[in-house]
């Protein structure tokens, strides 16, 4: 449903992404993995209209048009990196802000209850300031806020960043349940092990290029890691 063709982008004169061709299937969870500086976050920022680009981004076959907020209204919603929550606002206000697009405002309370059913811990903390939450809870608020916008595609940037391993597992359990509900998810992740545990499709990026595209099932982890760390003898190639 979402597709990039020869997508290049970057910051001013510096090109970070080089001719990226990717397909994100509807209802699937696509993981983009790769080391630091591979261009994963740049890809996400480009997809959500925060960076200018050359090439094409197609949603359901039609070129994607509009600024970031407009894309979100059309259903392309991002959960930003670093558990970016509005610290001076309560958990509930953070969540309600996710329902900003007009199509979400009608059933706000039902939408909220859905989130609290999904993240019971947030219900306990609904009136607490988001700035006072633990890392894992803040990540839940950030994801809940994105879900409140009723995304057609949810882009999640590096949800494991800076979280304790136990909490990472908890967050990924939630992502697995989200996927079970049929949400189309694009996941950016450095941690290949947890990413592969939930992914349907996997793309490996390095130095601004996609060097491997595979189904997650039956993927040779050694080969992925060889490519990931650019070890000697690793053969590049899209195995699709």
């Amino acid at each position: 449903m979402l597709e990039t063709r020869n997508l290049s982008s970057g910051y001013g004169a510096i090109t970070v992404l080089w001719d990226v061709n990717l397909t994100f299937r509807a209802g699937a969870l696509t993981a983009i993995v790769g080391p630091n500086g591979a261009g994963k976050t740049t890809l996400l920022r480009t997809l959500t209209g925060l960076l200018p680009f050359s090439g094409e981004i197609l949603m359901d076959g039609a070129p994607l048009k509009g600024k970031t907020w407009d894309l979100a209204v059309q259903g392309l919603v991002m959960v930003p990196e670093g558990r970016l929550v509005f610290r001076d606002m309560s958990v509930e206000e953070n969540l309600c802000l996710g329902a900003y697009p007009e199509r979400c405002r009608g059933d706000l309370s039902a939408n909220l209850e859905r989130m609290y059913a999904f993240f019971p811990r947030l219900k306990e903390r609904r009136h607490q300031l988001a700035g006072s939450l633990s890392g894992g809870e803040a990540q839940m608020v950030a994801m809940g806020r994105g879900l409140m916008a009723k995304p057609r595609i949810l882009l999640i940037d590096e949800p494991s960043l800076g979280l304790a391993p136990v909490i990472v597992n908890e967050v990924f359990d939630i992502i697995r349940r989200l996927k079970g509900e049929g949400t189309t998810i694009v996941l950016i992740e450095q941690n290949t092990r947890v990413a592969l545990s939930v992914a349907d499709d996997v793309h490996l990026m390095r130095s601004g290029k996609v060097i491997l595209s595979e189904k997650a099932e039956g993927l040779d982890l050694d080969r992925l890691h060889d490519l990931y760390f650019a070890r000697e003898g690793a053969k590049e190639g899209a195995g699709r």
């Binding site: 959500t48 925060l50 600024k67 970031t68 907020w69 407009d70 979100a72 209204v73 919603v77 991002m78 959960v79 930003p80 970016l84 929550v85 509005f86 610290r87 001076d88 606002m89 953070n94 802000l97 996710g98 900003y100 697009p101 806020r145 994105g146 409140m148 916008a149």
Partner: peptide, 14 residues
């Protein structure tokens, strides 16, 4: 929220 982070509001449609 905008006063806190403009980009984080844009990605949910503000």
């Amino acid at each position: 929220a905008i006063a806190d982070s403009e980009d984080a509001t844009r990605v949910v449609g503000v």
